[in-house]
Design a protein around this nucleic acid. Structure first.
Lengths: 125, 125, 125, 125
DNA sequence: GTGGTCTAGACCACG
DNA sequence: GTGGTCTAGACCACG
């Protein structure tokens, strides 16, 4: 019952996928304030990845203020900050928008493209 | 004031930045069918990068059918294929949309976010 | 007795020979889905060529969807797509047929020539 | 009224295209024994290519015994030798067959593929 | 002069 | 250890 599905073949680094997934779980309320995260070792075992990878993910989550760690006790979900969560989750989206605008696409085209793509993605679920 | 501005600090590979830039120039009509591109060597000199880097960019552009090369003569803009150009330029956008949908964002939120971001980017021009 | 025999005197580029050989091995089932390919460095050492040359081959195989790479782990055989494999392997054949037809050869002549040549090639094995 | 159509965007070298075209014309009887070929300069002008390129083509045709040159007079079609003409025109075909056989394709598959491709090419004429 | 291929070797991110 | 990117520079075919 892994909460996290990794795509090992993706070009997105594994630690980044783990980051995203935890942040999504916090956003959706699956994980609430002060909930304990799995230990680095157990999650690494669970996901079949190197413990260092999970470590890096937790370190980044802590640096962004999403989780906090208590030495010898573990890692826990911090107070939810919707704004920074949104910012994080939409950072790729923001980057892509900037890129598209610079490429010369106008608002109408992009909105239309967005709607089509959302429909397409939703169907494939 | 070269036609191509590189961001050496970006994580986007140089050859990829060159790719994108040329595709944008073709899309915007700055470069038209059969127009000659700068030679590998001259562009490399111009950008201060290694000829191999430009070579790689041109090789990818040729494989995608955006340009064609005549040995001993140079590289030229191929017949414009708007569809594949759009596909290429919006591949990051598509990826980011998929990611955002999976993260749980709904259409309304994303459209609104898109519009705000476009306005913000446009202002900074 | 490496898996790959290179003909350094051939006009076919080394990376192209490597490409073809791997695709053949996949087609014949010697390499199956998710089998790991030798690392770029070890194969380069094995073949006595530069790692960049192998790298280029792997990059092209990945772009054609024949293999996938996991950063830090290695390169692996992707899900077999017989259609694109055939297309790749027969691209020279197709080109030669077009050329022959334009030169004025009719079907009967070409079929006969093909059969003779196949027999001749098979004998020399 | 150029007898020769060149594809400048093709990866087939221009001198090679010129070679092929002359040999085809000889095979088809458009050019007969002792017919004079256009001068290097006039053909180069006609095709918009470098005279050196035509020179190289004529040199190769002469070496293969397809044409002969008389100093100060020009180049002329030699006695037709069907066998070597066929060999030349089908050399790419032969190479491709060898390649396909080594890739593991059997006679039946290749014959079928050949027939389909011929039909396809004929239609596009 | 032009692109295509290759060597030699460096540095990086990821794991 | 693994692939990805890049530099520096060579040699070649073609024109």
């Amino acid at each position: 019952m892994a909460i996290i599905a990794l795509d090992m073949t993706s070009r997105v680094p594994i630690f980044e996928q783990i980051n995203r997934r935890f942040i999504e779980l916090i956003l959706k309320g699956v994980l609430s304030e002060n909930d304990q995260l799995p230990s680095v070792r157990s999650l690494a075992l669970d996901l079949g990845v190197n413990p260092n990878t999970v470590s890096r993910s937790y370190a980044e989550l802590e640096k962004s203020g999403m989780i906090y760690s208590i030495s010898g006790r573990g890692s826990f979900v911090a107070k939810k900050d919707e704004k920074s969560i949104h910012e994080f989750l939409l950072s790729d989206f923001d980057f892509a928008i900037t890129e598209a605008v610079h490429a010369g696409f106008d608002e109408q085209t992009l909105v239309e493209h967005l709607k089509n793509k959302i429909e397409e993605v939703s169907k494939n679920d």
